[in-house]
Structures are given as structure tokens and as C-alpha cells.
Simulated assay, not measured.
Amino acid sequence: MKNFRKEILSILLITFLSVNAACQSQKGSVSDSDVKVEKKAKKKKKQKKKKVKLPKIDLSHWSVTTPELNAKGRAMNIEPPEILNYATDERLLPYMYNDSTSGAIVFYSFPSEATTANTKYTRSELREQMVPGDNNTNWTFEQGANMKGKLEMAETTRASDGKYHRTIIMQIHGRLTNEQRDLIGQKDNNAPPILKIYWDNGKVRVKTKVLKNLSATDEELLHEDAWGDDEGFNFEQEVGFRKFTLEVQVSKGKMVVILNGNEYKVYDDIHMKRWGVFENYFKAGNYFQSRDEGAYSKIKYYELEVSH
């Protein structure tokens, strides 16, 4: 009888321990699952809290020209204050829009019918306006000017020779005053660009103007045909499809272009000194240099700043 009781007690003890172990195991399993669910929830919450990145660019002193035609059949141009609403303005989409992941303004251009005077190419490009909405107030080399931007080539197509299509990413454009325009009998205020900076097959290339006749009078050099193109200059650094900084510093008789803060090209010759007769304004964006069918490029600007 005693042995029987001992056997019963042993069976009950073993049963109790087995049930207890199973409960503990189940409890542990549920706990691990809860932890995993909690971690996932926290991760999703963290992703939702991710901040939207915006470009560090004040557009209150810029107008923009796009590859879209306006009601008059000309290239669309939007000035301040309307340009400040570029992110929601249907006229500007998809030519100028935010990439909120990288914090940049994307300038998209392709060959279209929306060309401007004296060119066959199209652009999605900013034009400096010292006085918002007014193109008649500009600056001279003697007054000085500085422009700095952080940008990158995001996408571009290739030409038939396998090279990437190139685009102009920065400019300094000359402009005749109304008096100079009337003096030479020109119908508009257009003057040549003293500076064109290209993204050219992964490199940064600089082109400037040179006076054909150094003895030309101040009136003669107001004519566009008084100026020719220099041979151009390529910076040694290859920027490819990476971010880079460009800075242009202008002072009396001098122009300096700086790539990534450590490579310089200085222009301080007679051509720069004679250029002082013109007014100027900065341009920045995507002035696409191809008419190939299906060609396009996208330039991202993260920062753009001008000072005088």
C-alpha cells in the first residue's frame, strides 16, 4: 500500500513538473513574439518620423525658364513671387521639383520647341533678379558678385558616340543697359555670356568670351560679334554623378571659378577688364545642350547662394 502511494505521488509530481515546464516554455515563446512585434512597431514609428529634406535655396530673387511653351508660344518663364510655389505649380512640374529624400531641387530638361532667343537648345534654368520681377537691375564686375552652389548630375542620356549629353549648369550672362541698346540700335538688351560652366561627360568645363580686337572702342565691343569663344578649360577633378560645389567670384577685371574648394581657374586678363562695360546676371540650373530625340538630363541643386 505504501509503495502504491509512493508511485501515485511520483506520477503526480512528474505531471506537475511537466505542466509547469510547458507553461514556462509557452510563456517564454509568447514573450519573444511580443518583443519582435514591439520592435517592428518602433521601427515603423521611427520611419514615419523621418524628416522631409528641403533644399537650402532662397528663390525670392530668381525667375525660371522651362522647356514648356506659354500661351504666346514662347518658353515658359515664372518670376517671383509665383516661383516660390514651384512645388505645387502645375506649370513648373515636372521641370522643377523637390527631391525630398535627398533635399534638392531637380531641374529637368529635354529638347522641345520652347527655345529662347539666339539658341536652339532648351532649359530648365534660374535667372537672377536683384529686384524680384525686374530684369533691368543687374550688376557690374566693378561692383562685384559671388555665386556658390552644391549640385550633382542626377541623370543624363548618351549621344550616338557613347558620350553623355552635356549641359550648362552655371552662367554669367551679359546685358546691355537701355542706353547701350539704343546706342547700337539693337532691338533687345541681350549681350553675350562671359561665363558658361558645363557638366561635360563627367567633368566640369569652363568657357569664356575673348575680345577679337583688343583695340575696339567701348561702343564697338557692345556688339555681340566683337566677342569670340576661348579654347575652354577642363578641371582635373572628375565629378561624375557625385555631389560637388562650384563657386564663382567676380571683382573688377577678374573672375575666379572654384571647384570643390580646392581647384581654381583664374581669369584676370585684358578681356575681363574690357568686359567691365557690361551689366551681368547669374544663371543656374539645366541648360541642356542636345536636340537628340529622347535625350534629357536631370540636375540636382542642394544649395545655391548669391551675394553682392
Rank of each mutant, 00 (worst) to 15 (best):
N234Y: 15
A216C: 05
K44S: 12
M1T: 10
Q24K: 13
N178Y: 04
A216M: 03
V30E: 14
S31L: 14
S33I: 10
V266K: 08
S33M: 09
N189G: 10
V239Q: 04
Q180A: 08
E263Y: 05
D188I: 11
G261W: 02
A191C: 08
S102Q: 09
K72L: 11
A145F: 02
E236N: 12
L92K: 11
K187G: 03
K27R: 12
S124T: 15
W139S: 01
D99R: 07
S18H: 02
C23M: 13
L54Y: 07
E155A: 07
E220R: 05
Y267L: 03
Q47K: 15
L183V: 01
L221Y: 05
W139N: 01
K209P: 05
W199G: 04
V257A: 04
L93G: 10
Q143I: 01
K254Q: 15
D230Y: 09
R205W: 08
G185A: 07
P94D: 07
K207G: 02
V248R: 00
E113A: 14
N260H: 07
N201Q: 11
M170N: 06
L54K: 10
L211N: 08
K44L: 14
T65R: 11
F282R: 01
D218R: 11
L211Q: 08
V306I: 15
A145N: 14
E247R: 09
K243Q: 14
F141L: 06
Y287K: 04
Q26G: 15
L259A: 09
L246G: 03
R127C: 06
A295Y: 03
S63Q: 09
N136L: 12
L9S: 10
D230W: 04
E231S: 15
H61D: 05
E238T: 14
C23V: 14
F278I: 05
A117Q: 12
H271C: 03
K300T: 00
Y302I: 08
N213M: 03
H223Q: 09
N20K: 11
T116L: 08
K120N: 09
K42I: 12
T217Q: 07
K212T: 02
S100T: 15
P111W: 11
G276S: 12
F241A: 00
T157C: 03
E68V: 13
I270L: 12
V64R: 04
K46M: 09
S109F: 04
V248S: 06
T115W: 04
E238S: 12
K56M: 09
S18I: 15
N262Y: 01
D218E: 15
L69H: 06
I299L: 11
I169T: 07
Q26C: 12
F110R: 12
P81N: 06
D34Y: 08
T116C: 03
N280D: 07
K209D: 10
E305W: 05
T156P: 00
